[in-house]
Nucleic acid binder design. Sequence first.
DNA 1: GCTCCGAATGTTAACGCTAACAACAATGAT
DNA 2: ATCATTGTTGTTAGCGTTAACATTCGGAGC
Lengths: 347, 347
Amino acid sequence: MAERPRSGGPVKVTAAGTRQPSLTDVAGVAGVSHMTVSRVINGTGPVRPETRARVLAAIEELGYRPNSAARALVTGRTGTLGVVALESNLYGPASTLYGIENAAREAGYAITISSVSRPGRSSIADAVENLRRQAVEGVIVIAPHVTAGRALEAAPADFPVVAVGGGEAAPVPVISVDQRDGARRATEHLLALGHRTVWHVAGPEDWLEARDREAGWRETLERHGANVPQVIRGDWSSRSGYEAGRSLAKERDLDAVFAGNDQMALGLLRAFAEAGISVPRDVRVAGFDDVPEAAYFTPPLTTVRQDFIEVGRRTFGLLTQRMDGGDRHARALVVPELIVRESTGPR
Amino acid sequence: MAERPRSGGPVKVTAAGTRQPSLTDVAGVAGVSHMTVSRVINGTGPVRPETRARVLAAIEELGYRPNSAARALVTGRTGTLGVVALESNLYGPASTLYGIENAAREAGYAITISSVSRPGRSSIADAVENLRRQAVEGVIVIAPHVTAGRALEAAPADFPVVAVGGGEAAPVPVISVDQRDGARRATEHLLALGHRTVWHVAGPEDWLEARDREAGWRETLERHGANVPQVIRGDWSSRSGYEAGRSLAKERDLDAVFAGNDQMALGLLRAFAEAGISVPRDVRVAGFDDVPEAAYFTPPLTTVRQDFIEVGRRTFGLLTQRMDGGDRHARALVVPELIVRESTGPR
DNA sequence: GCTCCGAATGTTAACGCTAACAACAATGAT
DNA sequence: ATCATTGTTGTTAGCGTTAACATTCGGAGC
């Protein structure tokens, strides 16, 4: 029953103002060395149960909180990952962010974000540099943008960066949803309904997702020997979809339209309603993303669902692999799913 | 012309593997002491132009990056703020987050996020504690939730926490949009169109915003001597709005409905369309938030716009004030704006 | 020619923590 | 009884940075 004296020497107690208690303070109260306290906290090395209890009590009493800066300094690890996010309310990126944050938190990592208002080669590079200055251990770039991919081509080999949904050519691991496959599914679904061809309202040209969806649509039409109409280009917004719809409404043999995302599909529906074109009776419409509202559009929208939470989780997985020295050219594909609703329903 | 020798003693060059260069390494290359390098980097103290140039060259050459952990350890400041965000794709919270991140970045702060899947007393407290362990200098809680507010009541006085859109009773600075006023505007707009009363589809009871909007609606009706119909409760989702719409469609003298947010309004529109009820001819509908899609609903939705970017900016401002010892009971209100569209248009 | 001053630089000591090794007791084997 | 072994605790030395003080040096003032 080694009843040690409750305090050894002159203990540096939280006296001068508001200084946070340190390991040494706890050690003083518990009557042990600071090392023993460290061992209790980290579970490294053996500690006698009574000692442990005494230390835990002291920690509780002082409200001790480990100093992460000191820990990071000595271990060289910060336990923080950076995410470069496009500053937008687009459903996909936001969901991906939460997926990543969840997976990271479970694994004991914190997430620091650096947002980018307009993606561009230098802004992405700046954001990454900004995060490196925060001493993150790795960076995830959510920027499904052509220029983002280009920015990543210069990614240094000695620092782990992964990209989600972009930068196919960059020497960093990439995880993405198979946009082509999704577009193929939507297009084939429309063709199977007997339409001779399918129009397409594409997203902005500098988005990889937009390109891939367009490519998937085009390939499918060509494979089926269908005529490939002129692409109409939008910017993902409902407004641009609306404008596309206004010009499409003038088209004579308009049968089916595949929109690059749900927002633009909404704009289409709006424009068609105004023009007295009934969906699905006169024209069938499909979208992409399956935002939660899509089921309540007028009419409910057929669309392609992407599992963003899964994307986030796998992205985190790819990053940890990369941090452990994994391949710079790893790739992962998430397969989307077609959700059929009334907008492509029976007439 | 003090041409010092290019290297003094045995400089600890980046030799053993991948160790990052330190101040001392830079000092060795530049032929100065590490303190001079520190002064060049931080702009503290005088340095001769030639010396500065030499140091900058050495920094460039080695690709030196200051070690933020070491800096944080000695200064006691991490330059990081924490944000507790509700894990949702709701338009408002996501926009607020970006507003905060922008303002913070401009001021040289990094943002660490900790998301919370379901708000609750302990989960919020856990998230805050989690962030404190990351040594953030202050925390912003975006959780317009009743329980969130309650969790903040226990917020320690020695650590700066601010809340956005919640926790009216908590001893922390709060910034919020004037929900009551927004609801009043929408309700009065509908009453002014000649309706005897206005129905309300409210958000979940444990959301403060839902309560405030409901209160604003109720007050307005009472002030105008209108009958106050039974509130229908949703959960912000389009699905719940749709269900509310189905039951409202059976109501006999249904004239006008004020939905607690735009998503639920969308559900209403859908249900009414299915029931053969025309908006705005048979029923007028208003929403809340002005999500970007609202202008393209069928019909375009009258709604109350909140400036979330402004909210984010002011939240950051309030936090920095608080960190400088500002009042724990500061409050800030952002005034919303009514946007009139076809859903409450002429019949 | 000497002192004094300020500009420029250097030296030393923390900051709070973990890694590495040292020390000591109790335990069991010999 | 002796010695290695194991369990438990302590001591010391950094990690890379900034704060505080010390030093050097050239020129201004007398």
